[in-house]
Design a protein around this nucleic acid. Structure first.
Length: 406
DNA sequence: CTCTGCGCACGTC
DNA sequence: GACGTGCGCAGAG
């Protein structure tokens, strides 16, 4: 996670550059931050990288060069493409990525707007790498096994920021990133992949990826290491997150065919905005003893155990599972489970973010406060609730159990 | 030399 | 026509 200070500096710098009609490229950003705040270019670069991962800043290829956008301020152009790619419900359409960043109206949400922003010129930089295409495919495939690929890597990748070290970011010296990018790239990129009209192609053109921050080496280095052979870039879930039309379809589909046996429809509490129709089925399926508004630790445990029961094919009445089982189960939660959990908890929109970031049970246990508040790009209010009432509780429960078990 | 402001052209909606 | 973007230039420090 980037430091708030740097976050401010960088966003401020981008805004400043924009306001004076200068391209907010890496070079200028680093220089201005250094001049104004004395921060080293490398550090700025690294922080910028983190911001990109957090989708607070968008990196785009515009008119042949790299530009950075303050995600919170990208408003322009609606969703022609959204409409084309995936028809959404009016609600979603109204606020496709409210799920995301809370900063001033959904910074992240803007990602997709951003993506749709300039189909002609503005191209996600990441698209330059093959990996991106893999990501695209991954995203597509997520319909079937989106939760399957849940590797902690996703979180790690994000957390990588928090932890530090993305020295790989540093390599992107201010000028190199920009200058290394020949304007011809986007052309070849487009033509080389898919027909412009195909959804994947659209996504490819429109998705802004954070992974691309420092060209290839960054996209492949740590994250890849974190993920393993087939997990590779998919764990860098942002790409899907930046393509809401994809993501939503994916999530919705998946939610509806949840492997655990209960769909989101079945699980979403009445207080949740979405999938309300299924709330009755939900109670039949799991007989949840809680109201989402009063989601307490008890509820958490209940859910965990219920989840457990469902997964183990047990009957609903057998919620007398041991906490030990609970602990194990948390570890075994898939991305879908986690998403379902938060959907049930009354955070359907934020659940999408967890899904997008491929947070599974293990990842959930590793999440820190900052990860939830900023790494998921969800609004601060829900994020705080989610962390305090759920993540923290789950973690505490888990680790307490673990201690007990020892 | 660096930074800043802005006219202008271009592209999208 | 409105708007976002950024090149390229001129002026200020």
């Amino acid at each position: 996670m980037s430091e708030p200070m740097y976050r401010e500096w960088i966003l401020e710098t981008i805004d400043s550059l924009r306001s004076r009609k200068a391209r907010p490229d890496l070079d200028r950003i680093c220089r201005m931050v250094r001049r104004r705040h004395g921060s080293e270019a490398e550090r700025t670069c690294a922080e910028l990288d983190k911001l990109i991962r957090e989708q607070t800043v968008l990196k785009v290829n515009y008119k042949g060069s790299v530009s950075y956008r303050n995600a919170a301020k990208v408003h322009r152009r609606s969703r022609k493409r959204d409409d084309r790619a995936t028809r959404r419900s009016p609600t979603e359409d109204a606020d496709p990525w409210d799920v995301s960043n809370g900063d001033s109206g959904g910074a992240l949400g803007l990602v997709d707007r951003e993506e749709t922003a300039d189909p002609e010129d503005e191209v996600p930089v990441s698209m330059e790498t093959d990996s991106t295409i893999e990501e695209e495919e991954e995203v597509e495939g997520a319909d079937e096994d989106g939760h399957e690929g849940s590797s902690p890597g996703g979180v790690d990748a994000v957390k990588g920021g928090s932890g530090d070290t993305h020295p790989q970011s540093a390599p992107c010296s201010p000028s190199s990133t920009v200058s290394d990018r020949p304007p011809t790239i986007k052309t070849s990129r487009r033509s080389s992949s898919l027909p412009p009209s195909s959804p994947p192609a659209l996504r490819q053109k429109e998705c802004v990826s954070d992974t691309a921050f420092c060209p290839a080496e960054d996209g492949l280095s740590e994250m890849e290491r974190n993920t393993g052979p087939e997990g590779n870039l998919k764990t860098v879930a942002q790409p899907s997150g930046t393509c809401p039309w994809v993501q939503e379809r994916t999530i919705e589909d998946e939610m509806k065919t949840e492997d655990s046996g209960f769909t989101s429809d079945q699980l979403v509490p009445d207080c949740a905005d979405e999938s309300r129709e299924g709330s009755e089925r939900k109670s039949q399926a799991l007989s949840f003893p809680f109201e989402c508004a009063q989601y307490t630790e008890m509820n958490v445990a209940s859910y965990v155990m219920a989840q457990d029961n469902v997964k183990n094919g047990q009957k609903n009445g057998q919620v007398s599972a041991k906490m030990d089982t609970t602990r194990q189960n948390l570890l075994f939660w898939s991305v879908a489970d986690v998403a379902s959990y938060f959907t049930i908890a009354g955070f359907p929109e934020q659940a999408l973010a967890f899904r997008t970031q491929e947070i599974d049970g293990k990842s959930l246990l590793l999440m820190q406060r900052s990860d939830v508040l900023t790494g998921l790009s969800i609004r601060l209010g829900p994020a705080l609730k989610i962390y305090e009432r759920h993540v923290k509780v789950l973690q505490r429960t888990h680790f307490l159990d673990e201690e007990d078990g020892l």
